[in-house]
């Protein structure tokens, strides 16, 4: 097995272990998902879509919800992970692996997101079977979601960089969530005229707009807007990673990797 796959399997195993170790937490999480999906499937649409609001159909609600959920994970998980590891005292040990700290953190986010998606998927299928409803998400939705997901993980790296420098950034993570909501909930057409011209430069906005075109307005996935959104997402991912690596080097230079 490749070292990266081995790392990923280690993280999946650890996440699963934690899930089993704290059954009350797992039960609470599963119950809230069950209620949420039951509400979605039975038609309580408005309250569940999240800030992406990709339309009022069942498919749009589900996609909105899943994407927002992945966005929350991608945005804050690495930073939360660094905070926790610094408090527990294991951050330096993670750095001392042949993968380097950031790859371990990415594997953790991927493992956590995978477990959550699998559980979510199982619950959703159960709900659909129980209620007799059908769900069809067009395959191009995955392609359309890619730029948005790249961008959100770029912002996640920025928060991870701040976490590695300052160790406790709970307030900043919360603030970042509100900023993300602000960026993606309001379509650029509702922005001031000056900003409308440069909306492609803002993080996440072109990606959210591509999704909105596809899901809410029912338009086909256009190549150029998608390419712009993908370039935007990739650029923020690279910039975020570079910022993180700079921050990590800075704390290693000042000898403050394990604590602030």
């Amino acid at each position: 097995m490749l070292p990266t796959l081995r790392l990923l399997s280690a993280e999946v195993w650890r996440v699963w272990l934690n899930f089993r170790r704290y059954p009350n937490e797992a039960f609470a999480s599963m119950t809230s998902f069950t209620i949420l999906f039951y509400a979605v499937v039975m038609g309580a649409q408005g309250a569940t879509a999240g800030p992406l609001a990709l339309g009022s159909g069942l498919e749009a609600l589900i996609v909105s919800f899943v994407l927002w959920y992945l966005a929350v994970i991608g945005l804050g998980s690495m930073a939360w992970g660094i905070q926790t590891e610094a408090q527990v005292g294991t951050l330096e040990q993670l750095w001392l692996t042949p993968h380097g700290l950031w790859r371990v953190l990415v594997a953790r986010v991927a493992a956590f997101a995978t477990l959550q998606l699998v559980l979510t998927g199982v619950l959703l299928v159960a709900m659909l079977l129980l209620t007799g409803r059908r769900l069809f998400v067009p395959p191009e939705t995955l392609l359309a979601a890619l730029p948005f997901l790249l961008g959100i993980n770029g912002l996640g790296f920025v928060l991870a960089g701040l976490a590695v420098m300052y160790k406790n950034i709970t307030g900043t993570i919360n603030l970042a969530q509100y900023l993300v909501i602000l960026l993606i909930a309001v379509p650029p057409t509702a922005w001031p005229a000056v900003l409308q011209k440069v909306y492609q430069l803002f993080p996440l906005v072109p990606g959210a707009e591509v999704l909105r075109q596809l899901m809410a307005r029912g338009m086909p996935l256009a190549e150029t807007p998608w390419a712009v959104a993908a370039a935007n997402g990739l650029a923020y991912l690279v910039l975020g990673l570079l910022f993180y690596l700079w921050a990590e080097r800075r704390v290693r230079r000042s000898g403050r990797l394990s604590g602030y």
């Binding site: 081995r6 993280e11 195993w13 934690n18 527990v88 330096e92 371990v104």
Partner: peptide, 20 residues
């Protein structure tokens, strides 16, 4: 302070072995 306290010793060893 190199260990995960909520994991057992054998789980700590398995996890660290795999990520290395």
């Amino acid at each position: 302070r190199n260990l995960y306290w909520h994991l057992t010793p054998i789980e700590n060893l398995e996890y660290y072995g795999m990520i290395r």
